[in-house]
Measured scan of single mutants.
Amino acid sequence: EPLWIRPDAPSRCTWQLGRPASESPHHHTAPAKSPKILPDILKKIGDTPMVRINKIGKKFGLKCELLAKCEFFNAGGSVKDRISLRMIEDAERDGTLKPGDTIIEPTSGNTGIGLALAAAVRGYRCIIVMPEKMSSEKVDVLRALGAEIVRTPTNARFDSPESHVGVAWRLKNEIPNSHILDQYRNASNPLAHYDTTADEILQQCDGKLDMLVASVGTGGTITGIARKLKEKCPGCRIIGVDPEGSILAEPEELNQTEQTTYEVEGIGYDFIPTVLDRTVVDKWFKSNDEEAFTFARMLIAQEGLLCGGSAGSTVAVAVKAAQELQEGQRCVVILPDSVRNYMTKFLSDRWMLQKGFLKEEDLTEKKPWWWHLRVQELGLSAPLTVLPTITCGHTIEILREKGFDQAPVVDEAGVILGMVTLGNMLSSLLAGKVQPSDQVGKVIYKQFKQIRLTDTLGRLSHILEMDHFALVVHEQIQYHSTGKSSQRQMVFGVVTAIDLLNFVAAQERDQK
């Protein structure tokens, strides 16, 4: 057995438009009618409502009807409940999964919650491996369901041993009777949507819809739904939504950006999952974080739909894509998950301010006199920076000697690579993860907040409520011999709460 199987392995699926269902090699399930009293909570997966979006479509000038398939009504709160249950049931049916076995899954959280929910009911041990950027709410729900959680670096490539995929496979090879159901490759993922989600949409719309818009992560949702719609409703256009920084969209030119990270969760990847059939997507749109969270908040405030950030991405694209539809036509959007997962993220004004998705003037509360002053007023001194090749031991000596707790790590040209902190280095040394002679590049981390000289002290204040420091950066445009230009970030300084307090105190003292 291989040590790991690539999540982007070539698909062996034989589905073709027009091929009889009787030739399918898979076990198919028909939607079942729910009894009045459910035998367990797993029976509350599927049969989610279709809700008309009344205000947002009109606000953006849509002539067509805009409908939302509300997947956050599933038992675990997301569309991923469907595939989690289906993968477990299919693994039980073919004898792969037996009582007492362990389920391991690399996930952005929602599939993990679905699997942990099913594992709690069915009696399996469950280990979820997820990147650090995923919300604390997801972690809390997983723990409450009895799952064990392993976190991995957000910026690790999918084929790196440190990625959530790599760590999951390492655990599988170490733990007896453990299984990775593997949402990236498992046919049960798109089949769950082909058999149930798509049929529900067709039934709820009486077979009449002209466009379907869905955000894409593993691709199982859009693949399964689109294949069924292509068979039953061939005139329906399928629109895929991919965040900026991901590479799922086609044509490839759409993916060209210097951005590699994004805040919206559960969609987009740096590889093409095996289950994603991009041939059934008629057109791709890219979405960005700001519009995703703005539209998610709009869905909550104006439509009462308590959905997550990827739902915002989907609707932001839908109001663009559906401009081509006329009166009497219908566009369906998939709202994948609930706001429950993001209470401390985009639902929080403070978080939105820190990330730059909300401006101070958007909030009406009274601010102190210094709130709208610029960061450049602080008069920061030149920063202490270190090269990635310097040793951890030497870096600790320098920081202690100069009285700093942290320093930016830059390359020879001064471009920011990340940050090192005294606390992080000492804990890594004590844990045996690094040696004093190791290069400081081994303990770089990139989960820090950046701020510009033109940003306000109010925004800085919000950042420092949650973080010990902020890195002050400025952009530099560099022209190359080819005539092309590129933008790079340079370090201007490091600012802490002490710097802000000293500035405010000094100004008030001078005024007296």
Rank of each mutant, 00 (worst) to 15 (best):
Val420Ile: 12
Asp282Cys: 10
Gln487Arg: 12
Val386His: 07
Phe492Glu: 10
His468Tyr: 07
Gln511Tyr: 14
Gly458Asp: 12
Arg297Ile: 06
Tyr262Phe: 11
Arg340Ile: 05
Gly245Leu: 01
Cys331His: 01
Pro408Val: 05
Met352Asn: 04
Asp337His: 01
Ile463Phe: 13
Ala292Lys: 06
Ala316His: 13
Gly432Tyr: 01
Gly418Lys: 06
Gly356Trp: 05
Asn255Met: 05
Ile398Trp: 07
Leu417Lys: 01
Asp438Ser: 10
Leu325Trp: 01
Gln256Ile: 10
Val319Cys: 15
Trp369Gln: 05
Met466Phe: 12
Lys286Leu: 01
Val415Cys: 15
Leu363Gly: 10
Ser427Lys: 01
Gln487Trp: 09
Pro336Ala: 06
Val415Glu: 12
His394Thr: 10
Gln323Ser: 06
Gln511Pro: 01
Gly309Asp: 14
Val434Ile: 15
Ala292Met: 04
Leu373Met: 07
Ala413Pro: 09
Gln450Phe: 13
Asp289Val: 01
Ala322Val: 01
Thr274Ser: 09
Val386Thr: 15
Val410Thr: 12
Pro388Ser: 13
Glu360Pro: 04
Glu465Cys: 15
Trp369Val: 07
Asn424Ala: 14
Glu360Trp: 12
Arg488Ser: 15
Ala311Val: 06
Asp411Arg: 11
Leu358Val: 09
Leu500Phe: 11
Arg278Pro: 03
Leu501Ala: 06
Leu299Tyr: 01
Gly441Leu: 11
Lys320Ser: 12
Gln326Thr: 12
Glu253Leu: 08
Glu475Phe: 08
Gln487Phe: 13
Ile396Cys: 09
Leu501Gly: 01
Leu453Val: 11
Leu501Pro: 01
Phe295Val: 10
Val409Arg: 01
Gln376Ala: 01
Gln259Arg: 14
Glu327Met: 01
Ile272Thr: 09
Asp242Thr: 01
Phe448Ser: 09
Gln326Asn: 10
Lys345Val: 05
Glu252Val: 10
Val494Thr: 07
Leu384Asn: 09
Asp362Ala: 15
Gly441His: 07
Pro251Cys: 07
Val319Met: 12
Ala301Leu: 11
Pro388Cys: 07
Trp370Met: 06
Asp467Ala: 12
Pro251Asn: 06
Gln256Tyr: 10
Asp438Ala: 01
Phe404Ser: 07
Lys449Leu: 14
Lys484Ala: 01
Ala322Ser: 15
Leu325Thr: 06
Gly423Ile: 01
Val281Cys: 15
Glu401Ile: 15
Tyr269Ser: 01
Thr389Arg: 14
Ser428Val: 12
Ser310Thr: 12
Ser481Ala: 14
Leu429Ile: 14
Trp371Gln: 12
Pro383Gly: 07
Gln439Asn: 11
Phe285Tyr: 13
Ser437Asn: 15
Gly493Ser: 13
Gln489Thr: 15
Glu265Cys: 01
Leu429Arg: 14
Met343Val: 09
Thr364Arg: 09
Gln326Leu: 01
Gln376Ile: 01
Val280Lys: 09
Val494Phe: 10
Leu254Ser: 05
Thr389Phe: 15
Leu501Trp: 07
Arg278Ser: 10
Asp362Phe: 13
Thr314Val: 11
Met419Asn: 10
Gln259Pro: 14
Ala318Val: 03
Leu306Phe: 08
Phe404Tyr: 09
Lys367Val: 14
Gly312Thr: 07
Ala249Val: 01
Lys367Arg: 12
Met298Cys: 12
Leu422Gln: 03
Ile416Lys: 01
Arg278Val: 01
Ala407Thr: 14
Val420His: 01
Leu358Pro: 08
Arg488Leu: 14
Lys359Thr: 14
Val434Ser: 01
Leu387Phe: 12
Ile398Cys: 07
Cys307Leu: 01
Gly403Ser: 14
Glu475Val: 14
Thr456Ile: 07
Gly356Tyr: 07
Phe469Trp: 10
Ile396Lys: 04
